[in-house]
Design a protein around this nucleic acid. Structure first.
Lengths: 201, 201
DNA sequence: TGCTCCGGTCAACAATCGTTGACATAGATC
DNA sequence: GATCTATGTCAACGATTGTTGACCGGAGCA
């Protein structure tokens, strides 16, 4: 019924509306807790059409992850700027999808536990975050980049999923300062000279 | 049929066998992916008895978390020792429940996505980890302790749940060195003096 | 007019889930 | 022996899930 209304209205397609609804749902609840019927109800259509558009729940989820994430912005300048930028981005919420405090990261961190979802998420984290970041780091670059990713994911989980009080209520600028410092530490410290010193026993 | 067999054999109760099986299942799969029938099958009994013993799936999960976790060991000495100890414990696997690479932390990090499970997990993290750790830290102690917890959780998730290659395959001692350093940094750096310097713009 | 394709609905499938209540068995107690 | 209670089993409930196939209205085309 909702055909191109006379003129050239951009008029987002039903498929994209499903995708948007899916991103929001998957960002707020776990993969299993989110039903296709919920998503269909958001758009105002029947479940079967969701399935017809995307083939399966797993594929819809994969497309939702791909649609939600956007490339992480990594400044080309020194380590300090990179650290600060990452610290800010971990708190960023999505500008366009401004419902609640949902950001593009949340759909990723919500979906670790389920095997179906984890496969999708793992690929994204490696390709779109760890690998680009590792190019900016000293050896062992891959380990450093992964630890940074794990830290950011942990912070986002504690703050937005578990809603642990100290991270949920604390002043954002204070946290950003702490986090930026930690990230900078992860980027530059030599593990052999400083890290192993206490680990012999 | 399995009464105290004549003498004083310790003979673990069926209830505890259910609990053990639940810990393993919940550590390996998400809360929703784990069915009561799977747990019952592990023990070799009927589903209904699982339900009769624990009242509901949610309560069984809560008891499983409580049974799986054990108090984190915090050395009383300096920050360096605490950092090293935490770095080692994040890689520790459970000695008694030695199936696979399952450790007491995994049931926690597997289950944060589901709301039912998150409520249980949140309480444990605050009471048994963040609060004891915060007593050893400078202000803002709660924020620091929570960031450390988030970091450790992130590392465990990336390594044991997502199985991200760099953390999954890297040399353990190398990672421990990096992690211990990062934790020490989180414990002692003054956020106002060092953290805010770049965040004014 | 007739045909076909797109966008979408409707009803139902088979499976799985947590949950419930009725019933069985075996010791312990009286 | 009769009764009670702990330890289980069995069968089924109602709800929800992802999934499937039949169907339908309207637009475009010949």
């Amino acid at each position: 019924m909702r055909r191109q209304s006379a003129v050239q209205k951009p008029e987002i397609s039903t498929r994209d509306r499903i995708l948007n609804a899916a991103v929001l749902r998957f960002s707020r609840r776990s993969y299993e807790e989110t039903g296709l019927r919920d998503i269909a109800a958001d758009v105002g259509i029947d479940v079967s059409y969701v399935h017809r558009c995307f083939g399966s729940k797993k594929r819809l989820f994969a497309e939702a992850v791909e649609a939600a994430i956007r490339p992480v912005h990594l400044p080309t300048s020194g380590t300090g700027e990179v650290a600060c930028s990452l610290a800010q981005q971990v708190f960023a919420r999505d500008a366009t999808r401004s419902h609640g405090n949902i950001g593009p990261l949340d759909i990723v961190v919500r979906s670790f536990a389920s095997e179906d979802a984890a496969r999708v998420v793992r690929q994204f984290i490696l390709k779109d975050f760890i690998n680009p970041l590792a190019e900016k780091l000293d050896q062992p670059a891959a380990s450093r980049a992964t630890l940074i990713a794990a830290f950011l994911a942990g912070v986002r989980i504690f703050r937005n999923v578990l809603r642990i009080a100290p991270l949920f209520k604390a002043e954002r600028s204070e946290l950003e300062g702490l986090i930026a410092n930690v990230i900078e530490e992860m980027m530059k410290v030599d593990p052999v000279a400083q890290g192993h010193r206490r680990l012999t026993g």
